[in-house]
Design a protein around this nucleic acid. Structure first.
Lengths: 204, 204
DNA sequence: CTTAAACGATAACATTTGTTACCAAATTTC
DNA sequence: GAAATTTGGTAACAAATGTTATCGTTTAAG
């Protein structure tokens, strides 16, 4: 153990956190993890551009990303990702279609990436195992629910309520992410978000 | 073949359409389909009430349904379902949690329903077969994309654009569904939808 | 250290959308 | 087929939200 080079220790330490998301059999683990490559990129790096075809999936060791798309000239931020998350443009990665979104770092990031071909072969193997299968299905199902609920909050809540929910449920987003990204994430203008904050500051 | 009772012929005819959604091996088909029960219900029948736990999945032979939830007193319609679709409150059906939605017929309907325990045992068996598994995963994946894209259209498009998209892409919805349901589906008030229609009628 | 870029607040004004109320047509119910 | 319910249109006004522009403050780059 202590004989291993520092780099290898770091790799396995970080990737351990993703075992639930890449649920491979123990004896395969080493073979798969070796296919991940570590990179460091500055803030505002575009990892995938809207319209390109996604060939890589990322794990975030450090930093955060946003997923956004161009809407008639202005950027609409759609999702944020932080440490210990896996990120890709899922529809493009899975189906090989042009991505609907861009993937861009917000902070300087340390990332691990893996090629689609490796993910595919891995999935093919592990899906022979019922428990792994269920794990994968569950992950996908939860993502479905996530989109469903996120959508619901748009239909159900006012912008102010959405902001308050964000503050309560994911305060780290408000803390780490520049406000104009949050505004577009909430579906409102920067000015309006400013107004909402102001209103809340003066006791509702 | 001609010796079969009319009812049985009808059953298999209708259910054939769902083979892609309930992808069971051919030799199992008969055993599973026999667990479906046919019912006829009038318009405005509530099949599942928000807060209850879903134990049944439905196939629509004839008619249409809506999925809605209560938002501070008024009903928000979230999705419509038509002939040859399968419907359930998926999160409740799968996880056994209280349903976030009500399921209600809009027109008089002819439905086939199946119990959750039957679905579960069926899924367990068929998921041993790789091709069936992929089918199931694909169905789930497509549903995820559906929610994602539906959400996107809310962030990206104006109410008028959403209505025009609906007209172009799913004209049958506009034709068959009462307008006030469509308004809440589009996330706007009945009055505003009326204004939009008026505006479009007078050449944009 | 200096300058440029990014970020955030605010005001004034325009536009969109909601609310309430009322009416008419269509549909369902008895 | 008469009455009740559902459905849809419109007007007047109120509230929410967007747009543009301006101004500090902070952060990043040289």
């Amino acid at each position: 153990m202590s004989a291993k080079p520092a780099f290898s220790v770091s790799l396995s330490t970080i990737l351990e956190k993703f075992r639930d998301k890449f649920p491979v059999p123990p004896e395969k683990w080493e073979g798969y993890t070796s296919r991940f490559k570590r990179i460091q990129v500055p803030a505002k790096t575009i990892l995938l551009r809207e319209g390109e075809i996604s060939k890589k999936a990322y794990l975030i060791e450090k930093g955060c990303l946003r997923v956004w798309f161009d809407n008639k000239g202005d950027e609409v931020t759609f999702q944020f990702f932080f440490e210990n998350s896996t990120v890709s443009s899922i529809e493009s990665f899975k189906k090989g279609t042009p991505s609907l979104f861009s993937l861009e770092t917000i902070e300087p990031c340390t990332l691990w990436w893996i090629d689609k071909t490796d993910v595919d072969s891995m999935l093919e193997e592990v899906s022979e195992i019922a428990s792994m299968r269920n794990q994968i299905m569950n992950t996908l199902f939860e993502r479905t629910l996530h989109y469903m609920k996120h959508f619901l909050s748009f239909v159900r809540d006012t912008p102010q309520e959405r902001y308050e929910n964000l503050l309560n449920q994911q305060p780290y987003i408000v803390q780490r992410i520049p406000q104009h990204y949050i505004a577009s994430y909430l579906g409102i203008s920067r000015v309006h978000l400013s107004r909402i904050k102001n209103k809340l500051a003066r006791g509702k």
